[in-house]
Nucleic acid binder design. Structure first.
Lengths: 333, 333
DNA sequence: CTGTTAGCGCATTCAT
DNA sequence: ATGAATGCGCTAACAG
């Protein structure tokens, strides 16, 4: 691999000048710039990004921690983040936190030791205190889907409460009054908030929430299936169920069908997230859209703006969910 | 951030000794090792990986090029690759090639400029010649789902031909004789091979392949839907359709239903890939399993073994697909 | 087993 | 506008 030194020799200029045309940050006479560019070209020169990093104390890399790499959700997120940074010549290093406190911390320190210029964190298990302390260290970071009061400027969140509200409101408007709820693990903030939204909708329609059956699931297919089974056993009169995410909705729908319910005639189901396979399900899932891609782009913008000083538009900290009506929720009889 | 120099001062040893206990590659007296470790601890020292890379000309990073970051397929792949390397203290840099020659080349050179120690490539658009030339350069790489004769030791492939065979054989054994085929873009090797397997099965059962209707799709849902529509128009007698991937199967099934066919009673469908949502579909999709996770692990092993000299088991270059029987394929009347 | 020394490839003052 | 000099933090001979 050719070095900047060889380029400078071939171009007959100093090493510093070559650096200048590379970084394009100091005036260089057009004639010499061309000489340098030609030399670089002739040698097939590519700057060594590692050396650049060491000299500039900038790695041009952004670390991302997500819960899981597989799953429909993070694919969309990563895709949009990668596109945004790639355009800016930065690269993305990924690590999985698996919703586990120890693994999340390990991921973060792993990324720190990699000298990332910034971190984008979708973490669930570490505490607010831990994050607040982390903010005092030197690595800048943004939080995705997590609200920490003291760090509010760097939180990009979804209005989960309103999402939960929308799902239940939709069923209520369809005339359902006996609505079950399958939540995510309640220690997760989003699960709690989505459920709160559900309760608010119920209250607004003057439905006594104790009438409503609740099951705490795991955000996975199995939890949805178990939840539906239990809900239907507890109260066979249920005509609709809200699931706190699409995966559970998938499991719930399968279970309901196995228990002899026809969908959506006898039982309506609403999901949450609008993952890419939600319209493959049948009936096609009515769900609440989680604009994860847009949120990833916003997180990227935060980094580009605050860490790399690019002049970009304002940061939108909270995103609004939106109901996607498909075929799994029908009017109550 | 503390440096190795500060550690050496605090521990009262030389800078080289500190480096030795970090890298743990040269004998160091236990007593001094402890002194050093304590000093590192007291200073909260973490080696600067950028400086390590520059000095050792090793970045401990592996570049990955996949077609898309979203989609069910690559999530599984990336997840397994990340896990494997993370365990080894390496990190993964990802880039999307979007099945486009220009973008794939850009991704590769981007990763090269990042001084990756090795590349794992799932590329479709670049030519064999390009890859052969790349092999003469200094970056080692493995190829996923791509066979280049001159590079056979570094190709991790699926026996796509056999997969196509399995899908069609299954339908044939169920008594179907009028089988349509919706392929992927035929310029992609896997699409071509899967189709060849289909033809082989047909031949084996003495079915004249001209009887069989063919549609060239795009590996996406839309292509599947269009394909099914056209197939059913061309030959309404078709009782079964093989789709070259699950996404197209999803589109095809929707289209078939819209055309009034009941599944699987009037029409059987078999997919390919066994992506994570294939069992959410209804009827649950009968498909051919593509062990992408295992192949990713194998690619990781190749890198760990050939680039980082870890002693590991043998490399398995070709993986076998396997039929997953679910509910979308039924016996012919 | 440990210390000394010399770069790795580049960005960045400070001069000119 | 350009060149010379210095150092980023660490690894890797080479001595001892």
């Amino acid at each position: 691999m050719a070095t900047i030194y060889e380029v400078s020799k071939l171009a007959g200029v100093s090493l510093a000048t070559v650096s200048r045309v590379i970084n394009n940050n100091t005036p260089v006479r057009e004639a010499t710039r061309i000489k340098v560019l030609e030399a670089m070209d002739k040698l097939g020169y590519h700057p060594n990004s590692v050396a650049q990093s060491l000299a500039s104390s900038r790695s041009n890399s952004i670390g991302i921690v997500v819960s899981e790499l597989n799953g429909p959700f993070f694919g969309t997120l990563l895709s949009d983040i990668e596109t945004a940074f790639r355009k800016a010549g930065k690269h993305v290093i990924i690590a999985a936190g698996h919703s586990d406190e120890k693994l999340e911390k390990e991921s973060i320190s792993f990324l720190q030791s990699r000298n990332c210029d910034a971190l984008i964190l979708h973490v669930e298990a570490v505490s607010d205190d831990y994050l607040t302390e982390l903010a005092d260290k030197d690595v800048p970071f943004v939080l995705l889907n997590r609200f920490v009061p003291s760090l509010y400027q760097r939180c990009i969140t979804l209005n989960n409460q309103h999402g939960g509200y929308l799902a239940t409101q939709h069923l209520l408007q369809l005339g359902h009054t006996n609505i079950g709820y399958i939540s995510g693990p309640m220690w997760k903030h989003d699960a709690e908030q989505r459920y709160n939204g559900h309760l608010r909708a119920l209250a607004e329609f003057a439905i006594n929430s104790s009438q409503s059956v609740f099951y705490e699931g795991d955000y996975h297919e199995k939890g949805g299936a178990d939840g539906m089974t239990q809900l239907l056993n507890t109260d066979p009169q249920i005509t609709a169920v809200v699931c706190a995410n699409d995966e559970m909705a998938a499991g719930a729908m399968t279970a309901a069908r196995e228990l002899g319910r026809s969908l959506p005639e006898q039982l309506s189901v609403v999901g949450f997230d609008n993952v890419n396979f939600s319209h493959y399900m049948c009936p096609k899932l009515t769900t609440v859209d989680y604009p994860i891609g847009g949120m990833g782009q916003m997180a990227s913008r935060w980094v580009l703006k605050n860490v790399y000083q690019q002049k970009l538009g304002d940061i939108q900290n909270v995103f609004e969910p939106r109901l996607i009506q498909r075929d799994s929720a029908a009017a109550a009889k």
